[in-house]
Design a protein around this nucleic acid. Sequence first.
DNA 1: ATCCAAAATTGATACACGATTGATCTACAT
DNA 2: ATGTAGATCAATCGTGTATCAATTTTGGAT
Lengths: 233, 233
Amino acid sequence: MAHPGSLPLYQQIAELLIRDIAAGRLIDGERLPPERDMASTMGIAVGTLRQALKSLTEKGLLDRVQGSGNYIRAKADAASVYALFRLERVEGGGLPTARVLSVDRCAKNPALPAFGASAEGHRIRRLRFLSGRVAAVEEIWLDGAEVDRIAQGDLLESLYLFYRQRLGIWISRAEDSISQGALPDWAPPEFPHPYGTPLPQITRVSWAQDGRSVEASLTWYDPETVRYVARLK
Amino acid sequence: MAHPGSLPLYQQIAELLIRDIAAGRLIDGERLPPERDMASTMGIAVGTLRQALKSLTEKGLLDRVQGSGNYIRAKADAASVYALFRLERVEGGGLPTARVLSVDRCAKNPALPAFGASAEGHRIRRLRFLSGRVAAVEEIWLDGAEVDRIAQGDLLESLYLFYRQRLGIWISRAEDSISQGALPDWAPPEFPHPYGTPLPQITRVSWAQDGRSVEASLTWYDPETVRYVARLK
DNA sequence: ATCCAAAATTGATACACGATTGATCTACAT
DNA sequence: ATGTAGATCAATCGTGTATCAATTTTGGAT
């Protein structure tokens, strides 16, 4: 399959602006530069920019008033902006890799009440890559009953392999949910996003075959490297 | 590729593309390369490719816009039926299909307590095929709030397509669990397994974006024809 | 300071042009 | 019926230019 990322230019511009809105770089009420200036700084023609602005207007994200300017109309809660979009896999192949930032013994995470039979466990923080680029930061909690056999370096690759080879655990059930969360303060500077900005977040809890919950994770994805595609209707 | 049982080339191409969609290699909204380029890199004629694209359009997976391009119109969670596990035939090849055995209005299933806001719903029983061979029997429960729009014949293909095209439902959360279960007594004689024998079974509950649980399913797989591949984490 | 008209700014609309891309059709071979 | 090859038509895209309409700003008169 050939090159996938070749959307029409005006659609690329539209998604660029939408990402700016979702990321908070364009806030509600803000007036964009004049179309002519905007187009020239973007290196595109005015007509092309206008197509992009028109699609934003149709999505309710922009007010265009003649003689005055283009005004961002994004509702205050960023969740409604995200509701218009869909989180998708990054383009290109390559196996997902990860770099372990820290492995600590610590108390149970109150943010994950569904997880954990023990009062304490191990907390692993990882930086995840897709196609060689930083894509997400991740916090993984392993149940206390299993953590004594953990060795640093086991977690560079697949967690699944770690479970099976090192712990002998069969994951029989998992639950994922998608939400929004603020980037944690321990995120490394490589993560290309300003702190405090809402990010797409996936919460996962996994159970072993005997019913114990053995693992939970919180993952924040960089909206720049993952791809948002406008949802139909 | 001319052995007797092989499909026409354009159908093979169509299935290839559908698998790319299901696997997430082709994302919703993505524009395919121009037909001429696509055909040449695939080593086929444009007309053949166009037949494949036409069948994708009829399935609702593709938007063809003259002068613009071919755009994927599919949510990538077609494969998320196995969010935790990927089901693949050992020998590979062939798209999953299904034959509806029955569609009934009935009471809530006590075996699926987590599912269903309504007291009743629809129960669909399907026989599923992989590579033309019987692979699983399946029982699907749709919540009563959504079932009034069900029409027989909608469910022959992908359930995902049904959700998107008929109900406009966006599945935001799903839970899969794997266990063992006895083959139900309503399984047709085509299912190649003696009754009463434990089979690998997947239970799935899906929630819509507003929190309603809209679907639940119980699927019994023939262990002879399928294999489970753990998901890379 | 207030009011008002001219000037500047900004978006809206229209048209033209070349390049790209899908649609349609014919012809031919297996 | 399937697959290939080629020619031609039609729609879209991106660009460029010109003109009109609505708004804002400016500056002078009072």
